[in-house]
Nucleic acid binder design. Structure first.
Lengths: 190, 190
DNA sequence: TCGGTATGAATGAAGG
DNA sequence: CCTTCATTCATACCGA
């Protein structure tokens, strides 16, 4: 049946494409036949079922164990990841443990530059010792952390300007202190 | 062979549990090791990604034929995403309409190469019939879409490799996994 | 329970 | 292509 040959055909197409011979293969506007659509539909059903079963298995097994071993605060192990084809809307997201947040905040405050994938990898590996985490999580975290910091700085600057303009004598230091104290981790430094 | 057979096989495999144990436990649930749970987790993630891609393909191809007939098993794939975000707003950032996204996804999955300005122009013109759009928008969209695809493929491949390295055989059908790990693989002759 | 905030994640766009 | 930023969405969390 057609689906298994797809590998080969795809390879051929890829090679042709890279060659750039200008000869566009017959794939101008490929259209699936009804049969192929049916097959695809079956594929989706099959994988959906498999997903469900996997999730069920996962639930069954984890339900028996005290999976609160490592870090009980971590809800990201929640087996309710039955998303997939079901409810794309019910996405589960990474919940960093306090330890992980500490590490990340420290790195951030130390001006750790995350420009390289290698650095991300290292950080991820270190964090992995304190809970599940992926490189994407780390990447996103630094992205969002930078944005947060920037936003706070802008806000602080706004306050200062406001105070100047209105001649009010609100103690800027207080605002700064508030700002700084809201920067997690900063105060914790020795 | 057919998909339903495979489905059956998967059921059996799932119910039998780990291949490494060798001992079929039937209804009595053995306790999984942390490692096994981790593998299961990866499996779920992998299947989730696959399901997403399958659904996407299904959408794309059926959209070509009957555009608004998306009656899958799960109706949750579509509806409430009508945020109307693209309509209102004095937003500066381009917000592609659902129709535009559909068209773009179709083109992408069909392996449309956008390296030439001419092609971009054509696509832009077509998209313009369904909402405001510029050539830059189209160009950026393809850039970002490629990156997204690459990232997801890498992630899936990572999970598969991890499972392989741990000697646990997971993949129900390696060829299909390989096939699916590249979204461009679904090039069909008319 | 409801409303607001914090934040992980997705993505259009820019720069190199 | 790659990385980064700005914006937005969605969800978890929290106080009243």
């Amino acid at each position: 049946m057609g689906w298994l040959e797809m590998d080969e055909r795809e390879k051929i197409n890829s090679n042709n494409g890279d060659g750039g011979g200008g000869v566009n293969v017959g794939l101008v506007y490929p259209v699936m036949t009804e049969e192929q659509i049916q097959i695809l539909r079956h594929q989706i059903v099959a994988y959906t079922i498999i997903c469900e079963q996997l999730v069920q298995m996962y639930k069954s097994f984890t339900a028996q164990q005290h999976f609160f071993e490592m870090e009980l605060i971590n809800p990201s192990c929640d087996p309710s990841m039955a998303l997939g084809a079901h409810k794309i809307s019910s996405r589960q997201r990474w919940a960093p443990t306090p330890t992980q947040i500490q590490i990340l905040e420290n790195l951030f405050i130390q001006g750790s530059v995350t420009r390289t994938k290698q650095k991300i990898k290292e950080i991820t590996n270190e964090l992995a010792q304190h809970g599940p985490v992926t490189e994407s999580n780390v990447y996103n975290w630094f992205q969002n952390r930078r944005a947060k910091s920037k936003k706070r700085s802008a806000q602080l600057q706004k306050y200062i300007n406001e105070d100047k303009n209105t001649q009010k004598e609100i103690n800027p230091n207080e605002r700064i202190l508030n700002f700084l104290s809201s920067e997690r981790g900063l105060i914790l430094q020795a």
